[in-house]
Design a binder for these strands. Structure first.
Lengths: 209, 209
DNA sequence: TCTTCTGGGTCATGGTCATACCCATGCTTG
DNA sequence: CAAGCATGGGTATGACCATGACCCAGAAGA
């Protein structure tokens, strides 16, 4: 994950393109709409999620600066499978077919990293399927906690609702599970923040059968 | 789906490669192992699935001739996320990094269809996540039935176990759901086969909220 | 300061589905 | 034709988790 923070190959895509700024909470693209562009996120973070007709949402991933967004739907030419919203203020350039063709013709070596990037998305989604098929709610929560990049002071800044949306359980269940973890001495809760006090134990729990 | 049956761009990958034959049930690659090749399926069909430590299996997709297999793990260089086994007798060529590099250098126009193919995999997995997050078991089963290519006589050749593994429910639940569908007059059951007697009604059920 | 809002904790209730049995049926092989 | 085995189907039980309801605490805004 960390190596993606280096200069990405996507810089070539963004050349001469003026980025657009998105305010926190602003929609970047909407599930079901035509995907004639994809995005290269220059700064900020954004969430992509799928939503049901009843309004339930399932967060697929949180994109950070340097990531691509919406490439999958773009490449296979079908409607967007997910929506994306800015979490923090974001700057992103959008790339259309004409531009991609041009850049890819000029820099064919870009194809491999793009395939690699798309493959990572496949892996991410496979993990979701694996989790929902085989892991109970508490393990899914544990794994999600371990996947969040902590703040400098070690705090995991997230609400129960967010965790629930990410792993596919209700807010209530998250609350119950976190209570259990606290009782085990694996974490401590602050206001809208969590602190792992025994990450090793939590990890052991998360990855046992 | 049907257009994939035409001549695929992957023929270029297979040139001068001698295909290997897999007997029905034979393992093609194993979840968790290193992914130093991927496969181009020339004939037959194969299933890819993820499995838990307890032996439960979740079928992700059934590959047919003309498909690629195992590209995702190959491209991001991590262990295989799924296993694959031959369903019928299969012929497939395996492509390693050295060969891919060579072909891609000679035919850069191959990159786009590969991106497109990988993107379809992303969509497929997103549908799995969507289904498991938002759809009850009976709708998932209905959708799966509608997605099976029927035999010439209209029969859907599948066992309850297969259906269950594909949509992530137990054999028992499949049995219960199919019983309900039969009672509704939407389908008729034969030995190891199903016949849709009112596909329209089933479709309506499958795609209502 | 008072109000409002959002996030968090907890309960009872119920739905959904897995598990573990059991039995029925129809291929299949000796 | 018989035995054997795999598949299909039924049922009771219980685990798991969502739902709706309610209350509380801290933050934010007037």
């Amino acid at each position: 994950m960390a190596e993606r923070r280096e200069t990405t190959p996507w810089a070539l895509l963004a050349q001469d393109q003026s980025p657009r700024t998105y305010a926190p909470g602003q929609l970047i693209y909407l599930q079901g709409t035509e995907a004639d562009t994809f995005f290269y996120l220059l700064s900020g973070s954004a969430r992509s999620y799928i939503s049901s007709e009843t309004g339930d949402e399932r967060v697929l991933t949180t994109h950070r600066s340097g990531d691509l967004m919406g490439e999958a739907a773009f490449f296979d030419g079908c409607p967007r499978v997910s929506s994306a919203v800015a979490v923090t203020e974001c700057r992103a350039v959008s790339i259309d077919r004409e531009r991609l063709d041009r850049v890819l013709r000029a820099h064919p070596e870009l194809a491999l990293p793009m395939l690699q990037y798309l493959a990572r998305t496949v892996r991410l989604l496979s993990d979701h399927v694996d989790g929902m098929s085989f892991r109970p709610a508490d393990q899914r929560v544990a794994r999600y906690l371990l996947s969040i990049p902590p703040e400098p002071n070690g705090a995991l800044r997230c609400t129960h609702e967010e965790i629930g949306a990410a792993v596919g359980v209700s807010r209530v269940t998250v609350s119950r599970v976190l209570g259990e973890f606290t009782r085990q001495g694996w974490l401590r809760t602050g206001y809208r923040a969590l602190f792992l006090t025994d990450a090793a134990a939590l990890r052991a729990f998360a990855f046992t059968d």
